[in-house]
């Protein structure tokens, strides 16, 4: 039969280990007495954009912080369960956390460039990793800025302070900084909530091109953004994963009433 529209999205239940970038198994997390993540099990597919949605405080950001062990920085944080990246449980004591954070990059809600030049910002991580040769650094900076769709705007002022850039440019600079380390997974925690609608579209377009090279997990409060940019969407409520499906299904025919109520803006 003639197929007019091709949306080749695999159901989450059929994702194999080889197609999975991050596998979460029975993950529980506590901040002190507060049980924040409750028995989360899910597979984040490789080279796709996965959106995490849910009310504030439902555990979305905490979950992505588990993917690069950022929660370790908080006192009183305890976790149980597995987060498997590249076949290894990153919650193991043997994990080299610095190496993990190079592999799993993170971009936050507010652009947070370092108080240094554009160039230094992008190659900061590489220098930490011991890359010293100027030519290698130049190439990496150019490549990362191009991937982040910022090169044309800043190529003539690479040594100016990063703070002179606009909010949207700063956010793309931060993305370039993460990309310079060639991450396997890029975590975006509400990356556009402080940006204007047009800049937001630029960042969304960027996600579409970046997913060819890495897996993207985005936390967003903007439902339309989740529907627009993501291949898969997971809905969380009070620390539990309520529903996880391909975004086409979740935004047209969610299985659970709780999901339906949330995405249609009804009383839960």
């Amino acid at each position: 039969m003639l197929k007019l529209f091709k949306h080749n999205i695999q159901p989450v239940s059929e994702l194999s280990s080889a197609q999975t970038a991050v596998e979460v198994n029975a993950l529980n997390l506590w901040f002190g007495d507060k049980h924040v993540l409750k028995d989360i099990t899910m597979r984040i597919p490789k080279n796709k954009v996965t959106a995490l949605i849910g009310q504030s405080g439902c555990g979305k950001s905490t979950l992505i912080n588990c993917f690069n062990r950022l929660n370790d920085l908080y006192d009183g944080c305890q976790y149980k369960g597995e987060v498997i990246i590249d076949g290894k449980n990153i919650n193991s004591k043997k994990t080299n956390v610095s190496r993990l954070r190079a592999k799993v990059g993170m971009v936050f809600q507010r652009p947070n460039p370092f108080p240094m030049s554009i160039y230094e910002n992008v190659c900061y991580g590489l220098k930490l990793q011991g890359v010293r040769e100027r030519r290698n650094l130049d190439d990496a900076v150019e490549s990362a800025l191009k991937q982040a769709a910022l090169w044309d705007e800043v190529k003539d002022r690479l040594f100016e302070p990063a703070m002179t850039l606009s909010g949207g440019q700063q956010q793309r600079l931060v993305i370039a900084r993460a990309l310079s380390l060639k991450p396997e997974v890029l975590l975006l925690d509400e990356p556009t909530s402080a940006l204007d609608p047009l800049t937001t579209l630029f960042i969304e377009e960027l996600m579409e091109s970046l997913k060819k090279q890495c897996t993207i997990v985005i936390v967003t409060h903007n439902m339309q953004q989740a529907a627009r940019v993501s291949d898969y969407t997971a809905f969380f409520h009070q620390g539990k994963l309520v529903e996880y499906a391909d975004s086409d299904t979740l935004f047209t025919m969610p299985e659970k009433k709780q999901t339906e109520d949330y995405i249609t803006g009804r009383y839960g």
Partner: peptide
Amino acid sequence: RHPTASDLR
């Protein structure tokens, strides 16, 4: 409104 799910249907 960008309706979704049952509203969109």
